[in-house]
Amino acid sequence: IANPRHERRDRARLALAQRRLAKKAKGSANRAKARHKVARIHARITDRRRDGLHKLTTRLVRENQTLVIEDLTVRNMVRNRRLARAISDAAWSDFRSMLEYKAAWYGREVIAVDRFFPSSRLCSACGALAEAMPLHVRIWTCGCGVTHDRDVNAAKNLLAAGRAVSACGAGVRPQRRTPGGQSATKQEIHGATRGISRL
């Protein structure tokens, strides 16, 4: 989502400016100048990120009638120290917000699949569910013999789940529960993923 070229250069400038700020005497005029410089770099990073998000979300909404996303718990995910920087840089919450309001403008549909749907662990070829899968596992092979790229497999499963929700009119909010205790999205999944390898 972010622009890697600008992001890397701005991050290097930010790190240098922060080191210089740390060396300035507290209360000095030079410290105030250094603090303003750090703030300007932060603002530049934010502006460039938002510009990239606007361009991407506008293109996605213009080119697609229905967009399927995963209802991720970003607040919990940033607690992971290894992922916090990448998740914050991607600005997923802003991305979803822009996508939803632009979809409303253009008359498009945004479907958020339940956050508990095992998109990565569900075989998109046979529908079998793999055991717990750590984040470092990027490639895995199902018992049916099909080898999956974790992200591609998840995208296929999310697409099928989104189509099921769109076709059946099921709820897309994870808070909406059925009497059996599962979200409407979950109840449609197994039928939706059968034959997904043809996508």
Rank of each mutant, 00 (worst) to 15 (best):
R5Y: 11
H6W: 03
R11P: 01
A17Q: 05
Q18C: 04
A25V: 14
K26W: 07
N30W: 09
N30F: 06
A39C: 04
R40M: 12
A43V: 05
R44H: 12
I45W: 02
I45F: 04
R48F: 02
G52S: 05
T58E: 08
V61N: 07
R62A: 11
E63H: 06
T66E: 07
D71M: 05
L72F: 09
N76M: 10
V78L: 10
R82A: 13
A90S: 14
A90M: 06
S93G: 14
F95I: 12
E100Y: 02
E100F: 02
E100G: 05
Y101N: 09
A104N: 08
Y106L: 05
G107E: 06
E109P: 00
D114H: 02
F117Q: 01
F117D: 03
S119V: 04
R121K: 14
L122D: 03
S124K: 01
A125P: 00
A128F: 07
L129W: 03
A132N: 08
L135C: 04
G145M: 05
A154M: 10
L158S: 07
C168N: 13
G169A: 07
V172K: 07
R173Y: 06
R173C: 09
R173N: 10
Q175E: 15
R176K: 07
Q182A: 13
A184E: 15
T185L: 00
K186P: 00
Q187M: 13
G191A: 10
T193H: 04
G195R: 05
I196V: 15
